[in-house]
Simulated scan of single mutants.
Amino acid sequence: MAASTYHVVLDETVNGRFVVEPALPVDGQVAEGTVLTVRTTPAEGYVLDAGYYSVPGRWGAMYHESMTAEFEVVVDQNKHIGASFVPAAAVAHVEVLHDVVYAQPGVKPLKYDVFTPKGARDLPIIVIIHGGGWTTNDENIMRGLARELTKGGQFVAVSIDYRWAGLADGDAEANSMVDLIEDCYGAIAHIMEHAADYGGDASRIGVTGDSAGGHLSASMATMIERVGDGGFGETEGVFEFMPSYLPAGKSVDVVRDEMLTAIRAAAPSYGVFGGPFLNLYLDDPRIDDAWKQAIMPLHAVPAATVRAVPHYVNRGTKDGLISDAMCTEYVDALVAQGQRVQYVQVGGAGHAFFDWKPDAETRATFAEYGVYYAAEMKAFFASVLSGED
Rank of each mutant, 00 (worst) to 15 (best):
L260C: 06
M192E: 04
D359L: 02
E70P: 04
V73H: 03
Y270L: 02
I81R: 00
D99S: 11
A248P: 09
E72A: 15
G274T: 12
L216Y: 02
N140H: 14
G350E: 09
E376D: 14
S159K: 00
C184M: 12
E376L: 11
A61E: 12
I322Q: 02
S4K: 15
G200E: 04
D324I: 14
A165D: 05
N140K: 12
V252I: 07
E361C: 00
D210S: 15
M377E: 11
G131E: 03
R226Q: 11
G132A: 06
V384M: 08
K108Y: 11
V255A: 03
I322P: 01
L278H: 01
V272K: 01
A300R: 00
H190I: 07
G199F: 01
A168Y: 08
R39K: 14
Y162L: 04
R256D: 00
R307S: 06
T317R: 08
C184A: 11
A120R: 04
A3D: 13
M1T: 13
R307H: 05
A336H: 12
A88V: 06
I81M: 02
L260N: 11
A43H: 12
L149F: 02
I181L: 06
I128T: 06
E139D: 09
T261F: 08
H311D: 07
V38A: 07
V272I: 14
S4P: 05
S66F: 12
A267Y: 05
Q154I: 02
S4E: 12
G28M: 05
E368Y: 06
S269V: 09
D319R: 01
Y63R: 05
E182V: 02
I128E: 04
L167R: 15
V20I: 10
L180M: 14
S244W: 06
N175A: 13
S54T: 08
G170A: 10
P310L: 08
A304I: 00
